[in-house]
Amino acid sequence: MHEMPLIYVGGIPIDLSAVLMLVVSCVIVFVLAMLAVRNLSVENPSKLQNFMEWVVEFVQGVISSAMDLKKGRPYISLGLTLILFIFVSNLLGLPFSFITEAHEPVTIFGHVIEATKHLAHGDHAEILWWKSPTADINITAGLALIVFILMNFLGIKNNGKHYFKHFIEPFPIFLPLNIIENLAKPVALAIRLFANIFAGEVLITVILKLSVVSIPFLAIWQGFSIFVGALQAYIFTILTMVYIAQYTIHEEEAH
């Protein structure tokens, strides 16, 4: 099993691989977006601008399927950032991964990597540096936590007492069930995204063990992984919008 390059800086654990991959994802998304809006033109858009506008319209379609687009307008940016970030993150682990093998304690920035600390003589640890950031449950949990905080905050802000009333509906006895439902949403989001991408990468590793025979399988699986990456980004975005719609929009005819 591959280990994460974890170091302790003043008692705070830092996963260098996660930090690296997050930065890489953010930089790629940001550069892509900046290239797309570099020479904005109303009448003669560039190819990249056209692509970006297509993505915007796609996200608008996603939002309008969950709620009224007039109310959903402020969430277009959120949906765009989510779909681009998750899609790019999902793809990052596909072309290659970067693993170092350590036989003795490895020090980086003056701190020892945890996994190599207690290596006995002859043992070795494989440290995974380059992977999909979304193949790490911590990172998908972070994203899901943002969605969780956002949907509850927006629900309280826009819906007021209806948000709280919603928890004891249809009967007060449903209160624990509703709380579990609320909590289950981010957990499901995080685990679904993590499991899909992680499984994809594990399978790539497994296929690679077949050496030369692996090439056609790898080609097929990588193609499918691109599809899965896009699909998971879409699912994460649309579920976010559905959850936000569920908590923010007070349906009159339901009461």
Binding site: I14, D15, S25, I139, G142, L143
Partner: peptide
């Protein structure tokens, strides 16, 4: 790793 959660949120 709780810091990873924080990092991803911040990022």
């Amino acid at each position: 790793v709780w810091t990873n959660i924080v990092f991803s949120m911040a990022a």
